[in-house]
């Protein structure tokens, strides 16, 4: 299988009221990568993800599977995205099964997106199955995240860790080409974190799904990612994780800036 570029970001700048949230960054992600993005709170990680997903205006260039602009709409549904925050009514009458089934997109959309990707130079070789076996797909996604036993449970009755896995199952059910996870374990207990990381590793290795995830957990990044991007509005590093973790100066700078922001947030909250 040829190694192809899934995401290509070039000279990306995003401003909020003339202040840069993301400042002229460039990087790429190859097929099969598990890219961990680290950076303190307010570093622009979520803004970057929103720009990649077409939810945020920007200057610069973003290519997904070699495509940009008008054909973006056909590609976006083939991406699984688990945002940092999912807000819903506490008594929303939906079961785990209902929510995961929302992730399924129509055959027409899949065919449209895959056709486009196959037409480009990147020689995409994933095979898509029709969504007619909808129930099998949902069961499979729930099995992957270990939630088969909770399929008929109402989502309002789930714990944070269980909810997080429901949203990952929802992202997985459409056989995504790329999975984007925004701080997926921010408020989850340690046991659920381990379960989550095992799921991520399995999805990446066994299903060959490219993953981009943001996290503050350097230990997890060192264990599960193969590439690292370190950003705080600007991109300070992008490359193999071994290189990142062997650069003591960079690690020290990251840890200190992260700590300063943490302390600032803490003081701000106290006042």
């Amino acid at each position: 299988m040829s190694v192809t570029s899934v995401l290509d970001v070039k000279d990306l700048t995003i401003n909020y009221d003339n202040h840069p949230a993301v400042d002229n960054i460039s990087f790429d992600v190859k097929q099969g990568d598990c890219l961990g993005i680290v950076g303190p709170n307010g570093a622009g990680k979520t803004t970057l993800f929103r720009a990649i997903l077409g939810l945020q205006s920007y200057s610069g260039n973003i290519k997904l599977f070699g495509f940009e602009d008008s054909k973006y709409d056909s590609i976006i549904p083939l991406i699984g995205y688990v945002p940092q925050k999912v807000t819903f009514e506490p008594n929303f009458p939906a079961t785990v099964y209902d929510v995961v089934s929302m992730g399924l997109i129509s055959d027409k959309r899949v065919v449209q997106g895959v056709k486009l990707i196959q037409e480009c130079d990147c020689c995409w070789n994933r095979i898509y199955h029709s969504i007619k076996k909808k129930d099998d797909k949902i069961t499979q996604a729930l099995h992957t995240v270990g939630l088969e036993s909770l399929r008929n449970r109402r989502i309002g009755e789930l714990s944070g860790g269980e909810l997080q896995r429901v949203f990952i199952a929802k992202a997985l059910v459409k056989d995504p080409l790329l999975l984007i996870l925004d701080e997926p374990v921010a408020s989850v207990d340690v046991e659920s974190q381990t379960k989550f990381y095992n799921v991520i590793q399995r999805i990446n290795k066994e299903n060959n799904i490219t993953i981009i995830w943001s996290s503050h957990d350097l230990d997890a990044i060192s264990k599960y990612a193969n590439r690292v991007a370190c950003m705080n509005k600007k991109l300070f590093f992008h490359g193999a994780k071994e290189k990142f973790f062997s650069d003591k100066e960079l690690l020290k700078t990251y840890t200190e800036s992260s700590m300063q922001i943490h302390m600032h947030d803490h003081k701000h909250n106290m006042h």
């Binding site: 997903l53 939810l55 709409d73 976006i76 549904p77 991406i79 995205y81 945002p83 999912v86 807000t87 819903f88 929303f92 939906a94 929510v99 929302m102 992730g103 997109i105 129509s106 959309r109 459409k174």
Partner: peptide, 10 residues
């Protein structure tokens, strides 16, 4: 359930 997620779902 979530309009933004629906949009991203196509």
């Amino acid at each position: 359930f979530n309009e933004e997620q629906a949009k991203l779902g196509g």
